[in-house]
Design a protein around this nucleic acid. Structure first.
Lengths: 155, 155
DNA sequence: CCCACGACTGGGCAGATTGTCCAATGATTC
DNA sequence: GAATCATTGGACAATCTGCCCAGTCGTGGG
């Protein structure tokens, strides 16, 4: 659960320049290569680092519109079947169950506003979804990031 | 803007097993190594692949609570100064300006519900923020993903 | 119909990196 | 003090990377 400063620096370094290898990391951080490897193994084992997958920019794929859609779900049946069906829609990038007046919140992307309507229709068609409400993301002044959190956790 | 099937398979392969190198990719996909390298270079140049940074799990760092906070912002001054200040809060993982009754939506994490109150207070204290409303993510049946989108785009 | 162009292939090369061991040295805990 | 754990610095073979090249193939233009 805790991360020390070396871990934080290591993660930040990898985040800044993912292409550098373990050896280069050890040089930059002025520690032995084995230490870096051990740290990375431990971080991965603890689940802090879940992977190194390529980061994809949906807008570069033509999906320029991002929206957040909240759903109200019919009580009978629960969220699970709805979530399962939402998962089948590629444009649904993530889905959460939430507190408050609505039941789920999902982030969707689309190629245009008109295309967003198509995606929303797909969602509305999901069995158990009663109604939806959506807001469009106009701008993203703070894109998804975890580095500040890592630095804070490594204090 | 378009991606062909080989690109999609390549990205999916890398997403599934990020540790394998270019050479191994070429073997798996039954193409020449140079092709894989060229494809990856192009995808990166086109902005489709923005990086290979380590994926961090906030909950593994002790940030078990995720919430979505919507903000109403004082008109004078606009969003920019608010976004700048939000960016200084490590627990704010992302922030968007949005359509609808509210002005911004941000995703925040905290160590506990009590800690979430602290984070929200930080947000409320930001100059220009008039009021906030938050919902807590109880479960995340569909975690953030882009692979289905990539596969769909590579059709 | 032919040609140029871009993409892919298959190969080779030197240099760097990886995975994996090891013994020795702190640092911390009991 | 004794044991434990992390780190260091070094070694090794095997592998991979970055880079280059010549030849082939398919498409679109001339």
């Amino acid at each position: 659960m805790t991360i020390d400063q070396l871990d934080a620096r290591l993660i930040s370094l990898l985040a800044a320049e993912p292409r550098i290898g373990v050896l280069e990391c050890s040089r930059r951080l002025a520690v032995a290569r084995g230490t870096v490897q051990a740290r990375l193994d431990r971080l991965a084992a603890r689940g802090v680092i879940t992977g190194y997958g390529p980061d994809i920019d949906p807008s570069a794929l033509g999906y320029d519109v991002t929206a957040f859609v909240t759903l109200q779900i019919r009580q009978v049946g629960g969220h699970v079947p709805v979530a399962d069906r939402l998962a089948l829609i590629p444009e649904v990038l993530e889905a959460h169950t939430i507190t408050g007046g609505d039941d789920m919140l999902c982030r969707v992307v689309a190629r245009s506003n008109a295309d967003l309507q198509r995606v929303i229709d797909l969602i509305v068609d999901v069995q158990g979804v009663m109604r939806t409400s959506s807001v469009i993301a106009l701008d993203t002044p703070v894109p998804y990031r975890t580095m500040p959190l890592v630095s804070a956790a490594g204090a």
